[in-house]
């Protein structure tokens, strides 16, 4: 049978749609050892911290507990300021499900020390944005900060 048996008309092909029996699960992620301290600095002091590997001469942002190159523990935390430069950017015109957005949003990779932070850019038109442009983090008011990346509202041009 099988070798010769085929579904030849699309209309005969059935699929199984579990409908309401989808996959109602979610995930909860801890910020981790480094993240715990990194986000505490953002939440309480409005500061961005990196961790520095002396031997590899790299300052990781966001801070980490280890250097991925030499595998040493990183003990030295450095305040890297709240400014950086646009390393790259993209302009998003559609939502996750593919529908047009009301207004385009700009997503930037901001280079701070040797790391990149992915975030939104505000206060800049799509025409004016340039790679290499200096930008600054705009934080939410302290009372609204929860200890996450959303404590930074967006980056804006300097």
């Amino acid at each position: 049978m099988a070798i010769l048996e085929r579904i030849t008309r699309n209309i005969d092909n059935r699929f199984w749609d579990p409908g309401s029996e989808a996959f109602p699960v979610k995930n909860r992620y801890t910020a981790g050892m480094a993240g715990q301290r990194f986000f505490k600095e953002i939440k309480e002091n409005g500061k961005i911290f990196g961790s520095k590997c002396q031997s590899c001469k790299i300052t990781y942002v966001p801070a980490r507990i280890y250097c991925e190159r030499c595998f040493e523990r990183l003990e030295e935390w450095v305040d890297v300021g709240t400014e950086g430069t646009i390393y790259s950017f993209t302009v998003v015109y559609k939502t996750k499900s593919g529908k047009p957005k009301e207004s385009p949003s700009i997503i930037v990779a901001v280079k701070i020390a040797d790391g990149l932070l992915i975030h939104r850019l505000n206060g800049c038109s799509v025409e004016d944005i340039q790679i290499g442009m200096p930008v600054k983090a705009e934080f939410k008011p302290k009372a609204e900060r929860r200890g996450g990346i959303e404590d930074i509202k967006y980056f804006k041009p300097l």
Partner: peptide, 14 residues
């Protein structure tokens, strides 16, 4: 500090 997220997607199988 923790974040929560769900996939919000579904599958259909031939």
């Amino acid at each position: 500090f923790m974040t929560e997220d769900s996939l919000d997607c579904a599958f259909a199988w031939d």
